[in-house]
Structure formats: C-alpha cells, structure tokens
C-alpha cells in the first residue's frame, strides 16, 4: 500500500511480530505501567538496575505495532547500558519524536547518542496521532527509572 512505507518499515514489523525481551521480572525489579488513554493500550516495563546499570529489562502489555516495536527496540537498546546513557537515549528518542524538553524547547539531537534500529521509527513523526504510541514505553521507562 503506497504511503505507509515510512511508517511501517520492515524492522518495525519484525519487532512487532517477534518482540524482544517480552515478560516480567520479579521484585525488587522496578515495575511501571503506562496507559495510552486514547486507545486503551497498556504497557508494562520491568527494570532491574544494579550499580547504575540496566541489568535486565522486560516488557509486557498490549499495543499496536508502533508501541510494541518501540518498546521492543527500546528494551534492546537499554539493556546493559549505564543510567546516564539510558537517560540520554530517552532524550534523543523524544527529540526525534519532536517532543520538546521540560522547558518547551526543541531537543537538539546529540550526535554522540546512537539510535541504531530506533531510527526506523522516525517516520512516525509524520503521523502525529501515533507519536503517543511510539513514546508510551519510553515514558513508562522513565517512571520505572524513577523507582529504581
């Protein structure tokens, strides 16, 4: 179908069909639940942090291809990373989604932060309604980080 290639890139569909790091982690791992009030989607992020490093991460819940693939790619990208790196990645990703910083200013891309596969989600910006889908897991991650 013409027009949707930018949105539904093959790598996105792949993560949607075969989501990585699905599951749960038992306490004391942090657990946050994110809701998309628009569509009713829910996402669970389980985060095990040791010595300021993401030792393990699991994702649960249900959602559309964009929210699920975003969560899957996010889990791959942060596993084993130091917390400052994770925070920088969240910031970089939100910047790509055209989401401003806390002061309402555009987030300038930090070239030292590599997005890798996540760049496939760039096309989402053209579909503003779907930005919430793409960022759902990232906001949930921030909540889980706050608990860690």
């Amino acid at each position: 179908m013409p027009g949707l290639e930018d949105l539904y890139r093959e790598i996105i569909l792949d993560h949607h069909r075969t989501p990585r790091n699905r599951g749960e982690l038992p306490p004391p791992a942090a657990h946050a639940v994110g809701h998309n009030p628009l569509c009713g989607d829910e996402i669970d992020v389980y985060l095990q942090v040791e010595n300021d490093i993401v030792k393990d991460v699991k994702v649960g819940g249900q959602g559309c291809s964009i929210s699920q693939s975003s969560a899957s790619m996010m889990s791959q990208a942060i596993k084993g990373k130091k917390l400052p790196e994770v925070r920088a990645l969240v910031r970089r990703f939100k910047g790509m989604m055209s989401i401003p910083d806390e002061d309402g200013n555009p987030i300038e891309p930090d070239p030292s932060v590599k997005l890798g596969d996540l760049e496939a989600l760039q096309g989402v910006v053209k579909y503003p309604v779907r930005i919430k889908c793409a960022t759902l897991s990232w906001n949930t991650l921030l909540e889980a980080l706050a608990q860690s």
Binding site: M1, P2, G3, L4, L7, Y8, C39, G63, C64, R130
Partner: peptide, 12 residues
C-alpha cells in the same frame, strides 16, 4: 491486527 494499525491502513 491492532485496531490502531487497522484504522491507519483504512485511512489510506
């Protein structure tokens, strides 16, 4: 197919 994805494709 998730409803969001479905409606996106139908919108085409």
């Amino acid at each position: 197919i998730h409803p969001h994805d479905l409606s996106q494709v139908l919108d085409q």
